[in-house]
Amino acid sequence: MSEKIAGKTFSTPEEAGVAPMNPDQIAEALRKIDEGKRIRDSFTPKQRKMMSPKFSDDLSDTEFEEAQKQRED
Score class of each variant (00 low, 15 high):
residue 4 K to V: 15
residue 64 F to A: 09
residue 16 A to S: 03
residue 66 E to Q: 14
residue 47 Q to M: 04
residue 23 P to H: 04
residue 14 E to I: 08
residue 33 I to V: 06
residue 65 E to F: 11
residue 17 G to L: 01
residue 46 K to H: 13
residue 30 L to V: 06
residue 55 F to E: 03
residue 69 K to P: 14
residue 16 A to T: 01
residue 62 T to N: 02
residue 54 K to L: 09
residue 14 E to M: 03
residue 18 V to L: 13
residue 59 L to V: 04
residue 10 F to E: 12
residue 51 M to C: 10
residue 54 K to I: 11
residue 7 G to N: 11
residue 60 S to H: 10
residue 33 I to K: 07
residue 11 S to W: 10
residue 59 L to W: 03
residue 16 A to K: 08
residue 31 R to N: 12
residue 20 P to F: 09
residue 28 E to I: 03
residue 34 D to I: 00
residue 69 K to T: 15
residue 34 D to Y: 03
residue 53 P to C: 07
residue 46 K to I: 10
residue 26 I to W: 05
residue 18 V to Y: 09
residue 54 K to S: 07
residue 25 Q to N: 05
residue 9 T to M: 13
residue 16 A to I: 02
residue 27 A to I: 09
residue 7 G to Q: 05
residue 18 V to S: 05
residue 50 M to S: 14
residue 21 M to P: 03
residue 37 K to P: 00
residue 69 K to Q: 15
residue 28 E to D: 13
residue 41 D to R: 10
residue 10 F to R: 14
residue 38 R to E: 08
residue 45 P to G: 04
residue 41 D to F: 09
residue 32 K to N: 07
residue 53 P to D: 12
residue 4 K to Y: 15
residue 4 K to P: 14
residue 57 D to K: 07
residue 39 I to E: 05
residue 34 D to P: 04
residue 9 T to I: 14
residue 24 D to Q: 13
residue 61 D to I: 04
residue 27 A to T: 13
residue 25 Q to T: 02
residue 12 T to Y: 05
residue 40 R to I: 01
residue 51 M to I: 12
residue 71 R to M: 15
residue 52 S to T: 06
residue 72 E to A: 15
residue 18 V to N: 07
residue 57 D to I: 03
residue 21 M to Y: 10
residue 38 R to D: 06
residue 45 P to C: 01
residue 10 F to Q: 13
residue 64 F to G: 01
residue 44 T to N: 07
residue 11 S to T: 06
residue 37 K to C: 02
residue 3 E to D: 14
residue 25 Q to V: 05
residue 61 D to G: 09
residue 15 E to T: 02
residue 70 Q to K: 15
residue 28 E to P: 07
residue 33 I to Q: 07
residue 13 P to T: 03
residue 19 A to P: 04
residue 37 K to G: 00
residue 36 G to A: 01
residue 34 D to H: 06
residue 59 L to Y: 04
residue 42 S to N: 02
